[in-house]
């Protein structure tokens, strides 16, 4: 009983303690500022890929993320002007060689505007011979490849 009484007396200081959750409300303002002023890593080198050229940019500097059973890293890609219309399908992959045409949409370079996006599938463990590949196929079915060293990321 004595203990409970002392708790009751201690009530007042606890009142501000219960207001601490209000401090969390600073975070939305901070995140709003960040979202209005996004920063991205520098883009990778622009490379020719057959008759086209492409410049990927990682969306962050973090390693590939675990999603479900697979690992991915997100990129935006800028193609040469007017080239997108001539491309039937394009995708990103990681490995010593460019991946064959995927059965699903893994790594598909997608988006309606001129700046495209891709969630590039990464292997769980990277080896020294792994590279980041972009494969494009034109409307005649001919494929072209370009690669970047993963150390550039």
């Amino acid at each position: 009983m004595t203990k409970k009484n002392s708790k009751a007396k201690m009530g007042s200081p606890k009142r501000w303690y219960y207001c601490l959750s209000g401090l969390l409300l600073v975070l939305p303002f901070w995140y709003l500022y960040q979202q209005l002023n996004p920063t991205f890593p520098p883009p990778l080198e622009k490379k020719d890929i057959g008759p086209y050229s492409v410049q990927p940019m990682p969306l962050n500097e973090l390693p590939a993320y675990d999603y479900g059973d697979d690992y991915f890293k997100d990129f935006s890609l800028t193609f040469c002007q007017g080239c997108v219309e001539n491309i039937r399908y394009a995708y990103m992959s990681v490995g010593p060689e460019p991946a064959p045409m995927p059965h699903d949409a893994d790594g598909a370079i997608h988006g309606v505007g001129d700046v495209k996006h891709a969630h590039a599938p990464f292997p769980e463990r990277l080896t020294d011979s792994d590279k980041l590949w972009v494969t494009v196929q034109d409307w005649q079915g001919k494929s072209y490849h370009a690669y970047w060293e993963l150390s550039e990321l």
């Binding site: 039937r88 399908y89 949409a105």
Partner: peptide, 19 residues
Amino acid sequence: EPKALAIGEVPLNQASTDA
């Protein structure tokens, strides 16, 4: 996710570079 079309379902165009 809805299953992506197989690449074979996407027509080719041997006549020109256009889609």
